[in-house]
């Protein structure tokens, strides 16, 4: 029962962040640039509760947000980005060579690279790769932001973990 409540809270939070991003999203016409705020929740869940919870929150959020704010097309993109970035973050965390910031930076960048790759396949054009440099830089900056926020959130939430 406790687990249900916990999962529900994480999913809700991630979902709210997705909504906020949906509202404030369009940034000077470069497609795909997002803050990745929902990733704070995913990273937090990963660090406190482990891979399974993080994965669960990630998948449920993507499907919910996709159905409400996007379309089936959007879900495919989000899923590719979200899953790739999550798996790479898990691997990075396992190596234990990076702090939560390094892990979330990798997540941010991989998210963007995966989405470009999916776009290239679905739209059958290589031209989308011309966005790659901008998206790598954006992913890095947003990843640092998410990592710094998470580094405050994780110890704060950890205090309540045993309730």
């Amino acid at each position: 029962m406790k687990k249900v409540a916990l999962y529900g809270m994480y999913v809700t939070l991630a979902f709210v962040f997705s909504y906020i991003e949906h509202v404030i999203m369009p940034v000077n016409g470069i497609p795909g640039i997002k803050l990745g705020l929902a990733n704070v929740v995913v990273v937090t869940a990963l660090y406190i509760h482990g891979v399974r919870t993080g994965m669960f929150v990630n998948i449920v959020r993507i499907i919910l947000a996709g159905l409400l704010f996007g379309n089936l097309f959007g879900i495919i993109y989000s899923m590719a980005g979200g899953m790739t970035s999550f798996i790479v973050m898990v691997i990075m965390k396992k190596t234990d060579r990076f702090s939560i910031k390094g892990v979330s930076v990798t997540g941010g960048v991989m998210h963007n690279i995966a989405q470009i790759a999916v776009a290239a396949v679905m739209l059958k054009t290589k031209a989308v790769f011309s966005y790659l440099p901008v998206l790598i830089i954006a992913g890095t900056i947003m990843g640092v932001l998410v990592g710094v926020i998470s580094s405050f959130v994780v110890p704060a939430v950890k205090k309540y973990e045993n309730i």
Binding site: R97, F98, I100, G102, V105, I137, T140, F152
Partner: peptide, 19 residues
Amino acid sequence: FEKFRKNDVYLIVILIVIG
């Protein structure tokens, strides 16, 4: 959780340079 590790900084610098 408090500070950047050396590897984080390397990673960030390398990514920005690639970009």
